[in-house]
Design a binder for these strands. Sequence first.
DNA 1: GCAATTTACTTTTTT
DNA 2: AGTAAATTGC
Length: 729
Amino acid sequence: MNLSTLNSSQKNAVTETEGPVLVVAGAGSGKTMVLTYRIAYLISKGVNPSNILALTFTNKAADEMKERIRHLIGAQAEKLSMGTFHSIFARMLRFESASLNYSSSYSIYDTDDSLSLIKRIMNELDISDNFLNPRFVQSRISKAKNKLIRPEAYENNFFGIHENKIKAIYEVYQQRLASSNAMDFDDLLIKPIELIEKDAKILQKYQKRFQYILVDEYQDTNHAQYKMLKLLSGGTNNICVVGDDAQSIYKWRGADIRNILDFTRDYSEARIIRLEQNYRSTRSILSVADSVIKRNLNQIEKNLWTENEEGNKVSVYECLDDKDEANYICKTITVKMMSKEFNINDFAILYRTNAQSRSFEEALIKSTIPYVVVAGTEFYRRKEIKDVIAYLRLLINPDDDESFLRVVNFPSRGIGQVSLDSLMKISIDNHCSLFKSTGILNESSVLSERAKKNFMSFHDLITKYAQLTERLNINELTRSLIDETGILKMYKEEGSEDSLNRYENILQLLNGIQDFTISNQGKSLVDFLNDIALISEIDKWEDKSNAVALMTLHSAKGLEFKNVFIVGCEDGLLPLSRDSNVDDLEEERRLFYVGCTRAKKNLHLSFARNRNRFGSLYPQTRSRFLDEIDERFVQFENTGVSYSYAHRRNTYSVKRTAQQKQKSVMPNYEDFSQEEKILTIGSKVSHDVFGEGTIRQMSGFGDNLKAVVEFDSGVRKHLMLKFAKLKVL
DNA sequence: GCAATTTACTTTTTT
DNA sequence: AGTAAATTGC
């Protein structure tokens, strides 16, 4: 193996193979290369690839690393255990399921399934969701699980009465998951720990199997993951973790930054190797990123440096609103593309929230610039897709109550809420799943004959196809099931734009299933469902695709682009505000840092003076992060509409009526109409078709000026003033 | 029991 | 603004 291309720290990180090692790897310091070489190096020293466990943050990262290792050492790479914590341990659980009283075809509940279960339990326990927000309950339960706190140990005094209720919900929640033969995402991490702690033989088996453990993105592991690593590495202590505390951005998901800060305490003989030379970005970009991140108090001391050229200054662009921001970016991309210096996939637009993608999509379409939105509304979370998947899940795990409830009356079989409530009662009384309950309806006197018949025919349908899973491949099975249930036909016949969309999505799913069947001959329906439960949108994204990439700052972790736009740099959006405490602000700052350090050549930051949120315009203040930047590396730009105007931040002229001044909470807008009489909120207007009415809301600028008009007939209309020729009365 | 209408809620980020 | 949930009317 040729290690001569590595610098001395990198070389150490590759060759120090025995004992615990912490690699503190700054952004762009060649972390992936080090991990890749380290694995190849281990194998070249005679370590059996099947004794190596490498845990990554995304499946995509695992696949890419495996591919690189294959280049270095050949087909042996296939024997590596490589993947995300969730996918590796989900597989382990399938194998060991019997010891946990689960079947190997258990279902994986995603966040939506889990939330719906929590809502159902709250309903049963008569806990109003006004009293307790189900999402809050979900997050409390998840956090407890991440900390390995079981329901019986759940502290019920912290938030008083609420915590009591949450504890009660948590208890039923775990029971219900077990009786449904289902695991949520947290269980995939917790159950392996239970398994290993319960049975020393199993622990020894896996300790022997995984003699060398490598963990990427260690700063984003949670307590359960930490515990699992501690147990697994207990035999040899050969554990190498790689991470950067400055890039820890998943605290909200239970990630515990102490895992990396305290690594040397937990593994006393650990060596620390620092990778501080950045090979990715220009000096300007790095200086900007560094000047911001150094405001954080909680961090490991380090000094990231580069030999790269200073490069262009980082641009900060002040725009009027979201549209202006989107247009500016399209224009910039177009100009840069004309220079022939870049490919279209050298550009990425990064934002804090998925909802921000819309204005860019519109502008990119208009400018005929190809783009891909990574994530957004995830394909597998769409209703119609989840419905089809629910059928498949039921076939291999009929006890999956969430799937049962999704499809028992879809398409409509004449089963309503009343019948369902009765069935749920039967299932609770008999401590069995809903599906099993449909098998014992003869004894029930509560249900009508009609309802019984409907439930039983559903029971028969599932039983029939469950048997067919033996004989048909996944593709044939799904197609025939969809045909018999008439789902596709239903959407096609309805003919609305919405249902046509759903129709096409299902076709797309069918194509995906066909591909899977062809390229994974040996794999079963269980494998397929497992795959799609644990795949993320970023996993599916092809960086080779010829398009501008749009994604959240979170999704961008681990990626790099020659040109990066970080948009919406406004207080409240980036940093995103809720009840802001210092920890949250530091995490937002790290997120901003992650974004900046994705850029190799050019970094463009932008903020808007006004932004559409929840449908109306709000004045914005530029992000405090922009003020933290070292000005020597920055170039400020603006719309050029009117510079002095631009400087009167949030105080520019808004034509307000006396009425409006009283209610100053109304969003600001600029009235560009040249009419003598001014259209404002409260103005009486007349419309050729709808008659007379009153303006209730306004938003937009210039040609995009929009009004919500309540007409005297009672109709409320959203009108674009450019088209709707309103007369002021 | 179902479709149509109204209301509420969302925008944090994801395995 | 756009979707999901809830409510109402048939």
